[in-house]
């Protein structure tokens, strides 16, 4: 049954005893965004701010904040973080900066609070660095994107649109002439997304044939994170071959060799 773990049987706040939980490798990824005036973003990218390098400062602030999480959140355990990364992607569509924080450790409790704190403080620091030129900035999109390890298992935020704009842009094709591409298991993790729309036109423009092999080659070229190796493919939920021809509207799923049973 789902319940609030930080409340005891009397409804009082307490710190959860995790001493009996197994030590496992855990990772959490969280996002935040700062929406700003287009000229503020331009100034950040041009490096013209009086306070210096905005993005580098926000990144360090995020990393420092992750390490101070138990000081800020009352019932949060102090953790020995093994890795903290804070990435900041300028997004002209927003317009603003998208922040993604990842925290890792081998321990007995999850690291999503650390990732959320890192992303939040990086956003606050962006505000602090830029408030002299833009007071209307909006901080948003603070959420957990992914959790791995631990008792409750792997979890992925379904509408994960946090991928950097550069990776997503080549596939923003028109809906009526597109392939619906899906990824499972290890491939989903390599791609950091479970679904992708690929415009038929983007394959044709790059001279790739409209077949499973053509789509696979195109994906490997567009997404270097996608490792090569033995893959299985299904078209419209039926097992397919590399030579299988594709047409607009097809659902094409890529996955590693199956390991059920």
């Amino acid at each position: 049954m789902t319940h609030f773990t930080h409340l005891d049987s009397k409804g009082q706040a307490h710190m959860v005893d995790v001493s009996a939980k197994a030590v496992t490798a855990r990772t959490a990824r969280a996002s935040a965004s700062v929406t700003m005036q287009p000229h503020t973003l331009e100034m950040i990218l041009a490096g013209g701010h009086a306070k210096g390098d905005v993005l580098a400062t926000a990144r360090i602030a995020g990393i420092q904040a992750a390490k101070r999480t138990p000081d800020l959140i009352p019932l949060c355990h102090p953790l020995m973080l093994s890795r903290v990364t804070v990435d900041l992607h300028p997004d002209p569509q927003l317009p603003g900066i998208r922040i993604e924080a990842t925290c890792k450790l081998a321990g007995q409790t999850g690291v999503e609070m650390e990732a959320l704190t890192a992303a939040s403080v990086a956003a606050l620091t962006l505000y602090d660095m830029c408030k002299a030129v833009d007071k209307t900035m909006l901080i948003g999109d603070i959420r957990v994107l992914q959790k791995q390890g631990g008792k409750s298992g792997d979890w992925l935020y379904e509408a994960d649109t946090s991928a950097p704009a550069s990776a997503a842009s080549p596939v923003q094709g028109s809906q009526d002439a597109a392939l619906q591409v899906r990824f499972f298991a290890e491939l989903r993790e390599q791609m950091q997304q479970d679904e992708l729309q690929v415009a038929v036109a983007s394959l044709q423009a790059a001279d790739y044939p409209l077949t499973v092999a053509g789509l696979s080659d195109w994906l490997h070229q567009q997404f270097p994170a996608l490792k090569s190796g033995r893959l299985m493919v299904a078209v419209n939920q039926q097992m397919a071959e590399l030579s299988t021809a594709l047409k607009s509207g097809d659902e094409v799923a890529f996955f590693p060799p199956v390991t059920g049973g």
Binding site: A22, V23, T24, A25, A106, Q148, G149, G153, D154, F184, A185, E186, M232, A234, M239, A253, F255, P256, P257, V258, T259, G260, G261
Partner: peptide, 26 residues
């Protein structure tokens, strides 16, 4: 049925161990 389930039904196992998580190879 079991032999074909193992090789043709789309299921994937990820194992969680004390030294880390990994996807099981076929």
């Amino acid at each position: 049925i079991m032999d074909y389930l193992k090789t043709e039904a789309p299921f994937w196992k990820k194992e969680h161990t004390r030294t880390g998580d990994y996807w099981v190879s076929s």
